[in-house]
Nucleic acid binder design. Sequence first.
DNA 1: TTGATATATTGACATACGTAGATATAATTG
DNA 2: CAATTATATCTACGTATGTCAATATATCAA
Lengths: 100, 100
Amino acid sequence: MNRKQFSNIAKALSDPRRLEIFKVIAKSREISCGAIADKFPIGQPTVSHHLKLLSDCGLVSVRKDGQHSFYSADPDVFKGYINELWKVIPGSASGHIESA
Amino acid sequence: MNRKQFSNIAKALSDPRRLEIFKVIAKSREISCGAIADKFPIGQPTVSHHLKLLSDCGLVSVRKDGQHSFYSADPDVFKGYINELWKVIPGSASGHIESA
DNA sequence: TTGATATATTGACATACGTAGATATAATTG
DNA sequence: CAATTATATCTACGTATGTCAATATATCAA
């Protein structure tokens, strides 16, 4: 993971609303843009904008099926972000995977 | 850790320069504002600003000694952030501490 | 094909952010 | 006390961000 992706992921998770959206996606196996928009008091274009940021940084994947776009969380990218975090603090010997 | 602190930490780590500053602090046991400013091509007021954000969110602690302010990383807060991250992805059973 | 539905894009606006310059505050040194 | 040094604060500026309204694009249904 390069610096750009790391900062983009950190930035993506730093907005409370976007974090909640990501949590909803992570809890669902797959979920559409409209289904997400129904859960929050913000417009569909705003949700679409957040989804673009989440997919641009790799946290979520998109599968298009007809007129729907189904979003799902990519746990490997998310765990990769956590793994990068462990590298920030030296001598932190618990909980992380050195190789991944 | 509440939502505000979580998003503030994520935001603090999302700026590349600020992340580098935090890494420098984490690698040092203690380091002053000026010593940090010497390591980057940005002004002392800007460094002081970044340090304020890092200390406001709890990632670093400050110890004043005379005219110096010595900054040090708080690994517990940092690990607390990582622990909150594990709660975002359901069913991630490795690497995190459930109780902390 | 026409109308309805799902999603993405564009433009605009208010706010926040990163940075620099100047200055203030505080402490050390002569 | 005066001068120097270390840090913090204030103001300003260009840029980015979150949101909405309007619209475009694409797909389904009748």
